[in-house]
Amino acid sequence: MIWQRISQRRAPATPHGDGSLATRRIPACRQEPRPLATGAAPIVVREPEATWWQVQADLDGWASGGATMTVAVLEDRDAGHDAVLAHLARLAVADELLVVFGATSCAHPAQHTMITGLRGRLPRHDVVAMHVRHRGTASHWQTTLDLVLDAGRLPVVVTAAAALQDVAAEISSYVRADRVLRVSGTGTDLYQVWRRPER
């Protein structure tokens, strides 16, 4: 080390009483270790909650149990993501799937992109679009929805983005959904926002 070399250089010689020269060394500078603060709280790294792992296991292992009624809630920005469509297609194979789609504008019907994508990934499924304007019009869509589900089709309920949460809640309650999924903030995955308690 540079500082060790400097500290170990000889100092100027000093004469003894007999005229001979003596040399002395400058002691190397060493920093004493500082004691740790006694009042500092230790750093704790916690494992994720066990319930989080259980939710992910339930979401990823849908084929292990019986048929599940799953409601997936999507918005315009989620319609074009291939990863989301792939997850929906996997769910539709093992579960009874119902999609609730919130459209922000009729001028740019992003739901057509999603429906076309689902039909391409599910050639053996009949993907049917249903339009529900707002909450409170249950008598207009309940009969149609029953017919679609009884025929084994995959319904995509299209509603206004402003009414998305209300319509999704009402439909989920009506079909007695086992779980409700939303698209993650990154737009690449689905996560569970509600699950029916087991009896």
Rank of each mutant, 00 (worst) to 15 (best):
A83R: 10
R133G: 12
P12I: 07
T23W: 00
S139K: 15
A103I: 13
V175Q: 03
G17T: 03
G39Y: 02
A92C: 07
P27M: 09
S139I: 12
D166M: 13
E198V: 05
Q31L: 10
A40Y: 06
R30L: 09
T68D: 12
R10P: 01
A40S: 09
V45G: 03
A41M: 14
D18K: 06
S105Q: 11
A151N: 14
V73P: 00
A28V: 08
P197M: 04
G185S: 14
V73M: 06
L74Q: 07
S173C: 14
T38F: 04
G65T: 07
R25M: 09
H16P: 01
P48C: 05
L97W: 01
S64A: 15
V93G: 10
G61Y: 04
G65F: 10
M69F: 04
L85H: 02
L21H: 00
G102F: 06
L181W: 00
R9V: 11
T23V: 14
W141F: 12
L164Y: 04
R182G: 02
V156W: 02
T188Y: 04
C106Q: 10
W52S: 11
G185W: 00
P197W: 05
R133C: 03
A151Q: 10
L164D: 06
L74G: 01
G185V: 04
R9P: 01
E47F: 06
S184D: 07
Q165W: 03
R9N: 08
L21M: 05
Q142N: 13
